[in-house]
Design a binder for these strands. Structure first.
Lengths: 202, 202, 202, 202
DNA sequence: AATGAATGAGTATTCATTCAT
DNA sequence: TATGAATGAATACTCATTCAT
C-alpha cells in the first residue's frame, strides 16, 4: 500500500538526515511519489515523522512481547531481554537509533517531541521489564533493590552500549560481545550465588 | 562580559528549543542584545552552539576531575562518581541534558554534530572511568569483567536515571534516591562480598 | 512560459536598478509571482542575472549574424554593422545598455563578472568584426592599419554614442544622426578616395 | 591630513572591490583608522565614494588641461590628447578604470550614480575636446563632420582600447601600441592629405 | 487519487550607521 | 577627535504546505 511505501521511504530519509534536515521532497523522491501525494496520506511532516517513530517503537515492542515478556521465568526473561536488546539493535541499528532516542534531545525542536503513542509504549516497556525484575526478586533470584531503578540501569546500559557499537566498529564477534555484557548485567541484577556469575552466561 | 552573557542566553535557548528550533533572534532577545551583536562575538549560530556545548562539557569535566578522578582509591572514586553524576545532574539538569547528549541523535544533521572538543572530553571521561574500574579490579574489589563495558553500563545508568528524574518529578528526597541507585551500581561493579551490599551505602 | 516572464521581469529590474540594488523580491513583484517561484526556475539571483545577460547578448549577436556577418562584401558589412549597432541600440536601449557593459565595472565584484557565455559571444563578435576589417583591407578599400585596434575603435564609438543617445534625448531624426556618425566612421575605416566621404553615406 | 589618507585608502578599496562589495570597515582598516573616524570626515559610504570619484576625475582633468587643452594648435592638441588618454590610462589603470565609468552601469545601484561634480567635469571634458575639433575643422586640417560625434568617437576609442589593454596583457611595447592607435584616430579626425597618414605619427 | 507548480512565512547573516566613552 | 561596540533594517534563500488540474 502507498501509505506503507511512504512510511518506508520516510524512515530511510529521517534516519539518514534527521528530522530537521530531512525535507518532504526528499521523502517524496525516495518513495517515488509527488510531494502532494505525501500530504494525501499524512497531514504534516511532523505527523509523518511521528508515525515513523511509532511504527518503529511498535515493531520493537512486538518483538519484545514475543521473545521476552511472554516468558514466565524471570531469569530466562532477563537473559532474553539482554540478548534481544543487544542483538536486535545490532541487526536493526537504524531502528535502534530511533528507539534509543525516546528521550529529549538537544537537537530536538520540542521538549517532548515524541508522539504520545511512542511515549506510552516506552512506559509499557519499562513496566514490563520492572515486572520481570519484581518477579525475580520475589523468587529471590534477583537482588532486593528498587525494581524501577534497576530497570532504568538496564535500559541505560543497553542504550549506551548499542550506541557504542553503532559508532565504533568492533572486530570481536557479536556473540562474544553480548556474552561480556550479559555477564556484567546479570551480575548487577542477580543475587550473589544465584547461578552467578560463571555458569550464567553459558 | 558580553560574550559570557550571550553564551548564557544561548544555553538557555538551546536547552529550551534545541538547535534547529532555536533562532538567533531568540538568543538575542534572551541576552537583551541586538541580533548583530551576537555576530560580533560568534561567527555563526553553529559556532555559538558549539561553544555552548564545549563550555558545558568542560564545566562538567572539571568537576569530575576535582571530585572523582583525583581520588586514588577506586572504591571511593566510584562512589564519588556515582554521587557527582546523580547529584550534579539533579542540580544542573540543563547542563546534564547536554552532556548526556554526546551521542548522535535522530534530530542531528551529521553523524558527529558535536564539536571535536566535546567529543574528545567524552573520550577522556570514558578513559578516566575505565581506569578507575581497572584499578578496582586489580585490587580485586571490583568484578573481573570487561572494564570498558562496565564503564558504558555505568554511563548508561547515569543517563537514563538522570533523564528519568528530570522528566518525572519525585517526592522521595534526593539522598534516598541516590542511595537506592548507588546500591544497585555498587552491586554491579563490586566483587560479591567486598563490603557489598549493605554497609557500602552508609 | 513562466520562465520567460521571469526573465523579462528580471531584465527590467536589473536594467533599472543594477545587479547590486536589485532584489529578488522586486523581480518577483515585477513578474507577479511569489519569491519562491523565482527559485523554482533559477537557482540563485546571480544565475538569474547571468541568464538575463546571456539572453540579451545572444539576441544581439543573432541579429548581427543575420544582418552583418553574413554579408560577404566588407564595405556593405561595415555599413550594416554601423547601422545595426546604432539603430538597434536606439530601439533596444535596455539591451544595448547591457551588451555595452561586457567590460569590468567599478561596481563589479570580480574582474569578469559576466557569464562565460557572454564573454565568449563578445570575443566572437570582435573576431567577426575584425574579419570584416581584414577583408576590406585585403581588397584595399579599408585602411592598412591594425585590424583589432580598428575594431576596438569602432566598438568604442558605438558604445559612447549609444550611451550619449540614451542619456541625452535628441530632436534630430535618427536617420540623420546615424548618417553623421556613419560618415565619421567610414572616414576612419575606409582608404582615402575609396568612395569616401560624400557618396558613401547615400 | 586624515581626510586625504582616508580618500587614498578608499580609492584602493573601491578599485579593488567595487562599490557594492567594498565595506566601510575595509576602508577603515586600509586607512588604519576606526570605522567611526571615517564618519567624522564623510557623511556616508556613498559620499565617500563620490569624493573618490570626483578627485580622480579632477586629477585627470587637471592633467588634460595642462597637457592638452592649453595647446592652441589643434593638431598638436589632438596628438597630445591621444597620447595622454592612452599613456595615462596605462600608468593609472585604476584611475582610468574609474574615469572610464562615467556612464551608467548595469552593476550600478542608480541610473546616474556618479556625483554631479563628476558629470560636470565629463561635460567640460567633452566640450574642450569638441572645441579642439572645431578649431581643427576651421583650419581645414580636420574633417568637416559633426564635432560632437567626432569627440564621442574618440572618447569611445580611448575607453575600449584602455579596457582592452587593462584586461589583456600585451607584449608589444606601449609606444608601438600607441602609435598604431594614433594612426587610426588621426585618420579618422584629419582631412585626407593633411599630413595624413604616414608622417603624422612620427 | 496523484500531481507538482506556486506560495510566502521564516531565518541566518551582513553591514552602514550611530553614539557613549 | 578618535574609537569600535552595538544596532537593526535589509535580503537571499529554504521548504512545508496548498490547490488547481
Amino acid at each position: 500500500m502507498h501509505r506503507r511505501e511512504i512510511l518506508d521511504a520516510a524512515e530511510r530519509v529521517f534516519v539518514r538526515n534527521g528530522f530537521g534536515a530531512a525535507t518532504v521532497e526528499q521523502v517524496a523522491r525516495e518513495a517515488d511519489f509527488a510531494v502532494g501525494t505525501i500530504y494525501n496520506f499524512f497531514e504534516s511532516k511532523r505527523k509523518l515523522f511521528e508515525e515513523v517513530m511509532t511504527r518503529m517503537a511498535s515493531d520493537a515492542f512486538a518483538l519484545l512481547e514475543e521473545r521476552v515478556f511472554s516468558e514466565p521465568d524471570p531469569m530466562k526473561a532477563l537473559k532474553a531481554l539482554i540478548e534481544v536488546r543487544l542483538v536486535y539493535a545490532h541487526e536493526h541499528s537504524d531502528l535502534c537509533q530511533v528507539f534509543l532516542e525516546v528521550q529529549p534531545s538537544i537537537e530536538t525542536d520540542l521538549p517532548h517531541p515524541f508522539p504520545a503513542d511512542c511515549q506510552e509504549l516506552y512506559e509499557r516497556y519499562l513496566a514490563s521489564v520492572t515486572k520481570i525484575i519484581k518477579d525475580g526478586t520475589a523468587r529471590e533470584v534477583f537482588r532486593a533493590v528498587d525494581p524501577l531503578y534497576l530497570t532504568l540501569c538496564l535500559e541505560g546500559a543497553f542504550r549506551v552500549i548499542n550506541t557504542h557499537w553503532i559508532r565504533k566498529g568492533s572486530t570481536e564477534p557479536l556473540a562474544e560481545r553480548v556474552a561480556g555484557v550479559t555477564k556484567i548485567l546479570l551480575g548487577m541484577v542477580c543475587s550473589p550465588g544465584t547461578g552467578n556469575p560463571e555458569e550464567l552466561t553459558e
